[in-house]
Simulated assay, not measured.
Amino acid sequence: MSENKPLDREFAYTSVHFNTARTTLYRLAGIKLADSKDAMVYSRLVRRIRTLKLAGFSAYFEHLLSHENEHQEFINALTTNQTAFFREPHHFEVLKQYLIDNPDTRRIWCAASSTGEEPYSIAIVVAEHFNSFKTPIEIIASDIDSGVLKKAEMGIYPLDRIDTVSDIRKKRFFHRGRGAQLGNVRVVPELKQMIKFIRINLLDSFWSLKTPIDVIFCRNVMIYFDKETQEVILKHMMNSLSEDGLYIAGHSENFNMFPQIITAVGQTTYRPVKGLMSAKT
Rank of each mutant, 00 (worst) to 15 (best):
F86N: 00
A29K: 06
L159C: 10
I31E: 02
P212T: 14
P212K: 08
S240P: 12
L182P: 04
R27E: 13
L45I: 12
R219I: 00
K134R: 13
I223T: 02
R48S: 11
N201W: 07
H91R: 05
Y13S: 04
S142V: 05
I156N: 03
L276G: 12
K171N: 13
M222A: 11
E118W: 01
K32Y: 02
T281S: 13
E68T: 14
V273C: 08
Y224A: 03
M194A: 08
V215G: 00
R199V: 08
L33P: 04
E138R: 13
I168A: 13
I195L: 06
A29Y: 00
A127S: 14
R271E: 11
E70W: 07
E88D: 15
S166G: 09
H67T: 11
S146W: 05
F61D: 05
A264E: 10
K280P: 08
N4V: 13
S166L: 01
L191N: 03
Y157G: 06
S58E: 12
I139F: 04
F85E: 00
V148W: 00
T83C: 07
L182S: 14
R219Q: 03
I137S: 02
R176H: 12
E10A: 11
R50C: 09
Y60L: 06
L54N: 07
R219M: 00
E117C: 09
V94M: 00
I31W: 02
P136A: 09
L209E: 04
R186F: 06
L203A: 07
V125R: 02
T269V: 12
Y120M: 01
V41S: 08
V94Y: 00
E88K: 05
I223H: 04
F57Y: 10
F85R: 01
S36Y: 10
N131Y: 04
N256I: 12
T281E: 13
I261Q: 08
D101E: 15
R199Y: 03
L95G: 01
L33F: 09
D244L: 05
I162C: 09
F225Y: 07
P158N: 13
D160I: 08
F255V: 07
D244G: 14
I124K: 00
V41P: 07
H63Y: 10
L241W: 03
R172W: 06
E62S: 14
V125N: 01
V232T: 14
E243K: 15
F258H: 12
D104T: 13
Q72E: 10
K151D: 10
P6C: 07
R106Q: 09
S58Y: 04
H67M: 03
C110V: 03
Y224S: 08
T23H: 08
I156R: 13
Q72V: 07
K227N: 10
N184T: 15
N254G: 13
V232D: 05
A21C: 06
P136Y: 07
E243P: 11
